[in-house]
Every structure is written in structure tokens, then in C-alpha cells.
Design a protein around this nucleic acid. Structure first.
Lengths: 247, 247
DNA sequence: TAAATTTAATAACAAAAGTTAATCGGGGTC
DNA sequence: GACCCCGATTAACTTTTGTTATTAAATTTA
């Protein structure tokens, strides 16, 4: 059930069979199905406990009074949300599904046990939350400093690598179930301009889009063209922390 | 020594004398002075342990190859940085001082003891880190969706309230030791446009700037004008979580 | 105190991105 | 199979914001 999360965590450290089993069990206790484009939690609600996206895409977002909307983060299969359960009184943003979503609510007690009994797991989960924070920071940079062209290319690089980390790419291709309006709300551009920029990326041959299928035929070139530096994803040390054989 | 942090945490919950004393002791173990506009940690460095800003302003920032720079977060007196010490191998961004800064490095062992021995403190520290994350999200919204006018006003509202939370405001005034160039790098605008927008805010009487002294004579009006909603700062429940007398 | 260096303020012009509106196209529905 | 609806595309035009350059003012330093 927790396959995507497990796969992601193993980018950071090798988990034992028990680690994996425990995580899997935890994810099976309370599952929930969400329809596409439905709210999972709304701003003002009591923050939910730890939530794991088992499958599908969701996002954090915030709506201004006049209807402008910013997508703040994507929640992909294997992503966790921890709002520090009883500490904050209410959500300051909403979470909504983009596609159909399957999620697991992991009870506080289960989280406590998991991290208490499985040191590696605890470490790996810390890693995952540090990376989530790093992604949020990178989005600030992306929206604040980059041109439309760079923003869009950067987003695609990030999505591709994050999907790859959970095994959701085939070759140079991955599914990106976003409308241009959603992309616009993500990188702070108008739909029209997203469309223009998309054309540009296509015409140079840096991306290909067939339906919801995104192909990055020349990832390296794309990364260079938009100054994408993957360091913030902290994916580059497969288990090194736990192997004693470092240089 | 840790006065600002203590004051900030008490916006969330009342601390006991021992809590405060323990925090204060922890902050005295390893102090460091940083000159204005100096790097504290650089991208690529090994992430430092838990760092507490005792006094002065610092910021997280990221520089692109071609020199563009984005300020990702402000670190004000009483702010904490926790990079999850040994988990990530290298910093994906830099931290630099804006003014002269006094900081405390809190050894991992001390952090462990603090949170183990002082439950309230542990909770309060979790609160502070959740708020830091919420601020980061709000910046995404600010830069992504708002006009120059709103962005700037929003930033000022945030800074004022954060400074107020640590007792660094006098009436409607606070010190904001930023150049217009730094503000520009914060909200993703050019210096020239920041200047223009500043004039506009001034001419309407929503802000006054004398040197580094920022006055918000009509905070409410400013908040309305820029659609500032302070909910993301989660400052509105003075100790409620620990008092049993809730509704 | 004077010189040097930042920082702030303006202006004129250029470019990027937004707005509005119309059309096209595919997928699903009746 | 005709109709609808949503999402994508395109065009024309507007607005916001960026760029470059110059000057003024304020700080810092010598």
C-alpha cells in the first residue's frame, strides 16, 4: 500500500523488511478515497493528523478573496503531510485533490510507534520532511526570480525527478495530470502566458506533451536551459548515511 | 540571552520559570558574533546544527548563476533554524546576516535534553517550526499572486507582526534594516519598481519610512488594502492550548 | 571635514506578462 | 449523431514591471 513512500524513502536509506512492513501496515489502517478536484481539508478546518498520499495527485492551495488562487505545493504519491497535529488550531490553507486520490490517515499513536521502534524509518521520515521544506523554498526562488520560460521548465524538471523517485516515470516520460490553468496557478502566470511558454518549450524540442503525458527528451539540456539544480531534492546519496563505507 | 525566543514562544504557550531558564542556558553555551552582510553558512556547506538568532537580522537566500538573488526567508531575533543536523549532506541555500547578528549554536545533545525534559517547550518549539513553514508557504502566495503594491504591503504587515511578537515594536513603529535592493530580492521585483511602489504606499499614508524606521499608522487599513490575513502566523491563541478553560 | 561609496529617487524607454475575447477540438452526454 | 462543455489555442491590445542611465541624498570612511 505504502509502496510509493517506501520507494521514495529508499532514495535516502535502505529500509529493513520490518521497516517496510511496519510502514505498510500503518498505511492500511485508515484509508480514504477522494474524488478528483475535491477538497480534502479546507482553510479554517482543524488540521488533520498525518496523511499519506497513497495514489493520485493533490495540492496545497490558497485562495484570495477575489478568487486568485495559488497552488503552494503538489502532493504526489508517496508524499506525507504532517501538520503537527494538535499544535495549530486551524489550517491556514486548503488541500484539494487534482485527480482521484487514495490516502491513508495515520493515527498519532501509530506514528509514535513507527518512529520509536524504527530508527531508520524515523530518520528517513525526517529526511522526507526536510526535502518538502526545501522544495517549498525552491518554489519561492522559482516564482520570485525566474522568467516564465524558466519557471515552467523548472517545474517540469522537478515533477519528473520527484515522480522518478517513486517509480512513476517510464523512460523520459511521466504522467502530469494538470490543466494549463492549474500550471498557471502554480507558477504565478496567466493561463494564456503558460500556453505561449508551453509552445516555446515544445518548439525547441525540450518537452513534448501528448494529453497528460509529459516527455522530457533531453532532460540535461532542459536543466541547463532553465538553470535547474536538483540539489534541493537531496536525492543524491542512496543510502550513504547508513553505509559505513564512505570516503 | 534567549529573551526574544522566549517572548515569541509565549505567544503560543506560557512557559514555566524552569522552561525559560533551560532555554536561556542552552542559548549561552556557544554564542557567535557575525558582522553585517556576512555569510553564516554557504550553499554546499555541511548543514549547521540548531541555530538561534539572539539578535540582529539574517536571511536565507539563494543566488542563481547569473547573479539573480532571491531572499527566501528572514531570520529575526528569536528565530530558530533547524536543518535536521546529520540528515542532509549539504546546504541547498545560504544564510547571511543583514545587520550585525548574535547567534547561539545549540548542541544536538542540549536540544535533546530540552525537548525531553520540558514538554511545553517541545510543543512550543514545534509550534515555532510549523509557523516558519507556514510563512514560507505564504511567501509563495505573496510572490505568485499579488501585485507589487500588495506584495510590499504584505511584507510590511508580516514583519511588523513578527517583530511585535518578540517585543521589537514601539507603538506603530519598528526597525526594518533593509535596503530597497534587499526588499526587491525578497518579493521578486526590481529595485526601481520597489521604489515606485514604496512611494505609492507612502503617498496614501499607509506607511511612513524615516531611515530604517518603518511606521504603519493604519495597520488595519493596510491589511485590508493588501488582503493580508494574519492567520498563517498562528499568533492568536496566547497559551490557550495549555489552559484547560477553553470553550 | 572632505572624499568615497552606498542607497534612494527619477525619467525614458523596452520587454514581459496580463486581459479579453474569439475559435478550435476532443470527450462525453442525451 | 448532434450537442455541450471544458480545456487548449490564438490574436489584439493593455498594463505592469524591468532596464538603463542619471542625479540626489545619505552614510561611511579616510
Amino acid at each position: 500500500m505504502a509502496d510509493f513512500l517506501i520507494r521514495k524513502l529508499e532514495n535516502f536509506s535502505r529500509l529493513s523488511t520490518e521497516d517496510r512492513h511496519a510502514l505498510d501496515q500503518a498505511s492500511r489502517q485508515r484509508m480514504r478515497q477522494i474524488r478528483p478536484r475535491d477538497d480534502i481539508v479546507r482553510e479554517g478546518d482543524l488540521p488533520p493528523g498525518v496523511t499519506l498520499i497513497l495514489d493520485g495527485w493533490a495540492c496545497r492551495y490558497k485562495t484570495l478573496e477575489d478568487g486568485r488562487r495559488q497552488i503552494i505545493a503538489y502532493l504526489l504519491p508517496g508524499d506525507l503531510c504532517d501538520h503537527g497535529v494538535p499544535i495549530l488550531r486551524e489550517m491556514d490553507h486548503s488541500i484539494g485533490s487534482l485527480t482521484a486520490v487514495t490516502l491513508a490517515e495515520i493515527p498519532p499513536e501509530t506514528v509514535r510507534q513507527l518512529t520509536a521502534d524504527h530508527a531508520r524509518l524515523a530518520q528517513a521520515l525526517t529526511w522526507e520532511s526536510l526535502v518538502a521544506a526545501a522544495i517549498q523554498r525552491e518554489w519561492t526562488v522559482n516564482i520570485g526570480q525566474r522568467t516564465a520560460f524558466e519557471r515552467l521548465g523548472h517545474l517540469f524538471c522537478e515533477l519528473y525527478l520527484r515522480l522518478q523517485a517513486v517509480g512513476l516515470t517510464r523512460g523520459t516520460t511521466c504522467e502530469v495530470p494538470l490543466t494549463q490553468a492549474e500550471i498557471a496557478d502554480t507558477i504565478g502566470l496567466s493561463v494564456v502566458h503558460v500556453n505561449r511558454t508551453l509552445q516555446e518549450l515544445r518548439s525547441i524540442g525540450l518537452i513534448a506533451l501528448r494529453g497528460r503525458e509529459l516527455t522530457l527528451p533531453r532532460l540535461e539540456a532542459l536543466q541547463r536551459a532553465v538553470q535547474f539544480n536538483p540539489n534541493y531534492l537531496h536525492l543524491d546519496h542512496e543510502g550513504r548515511h547508513l553505509d559505513a563505507n564512505e570516503t
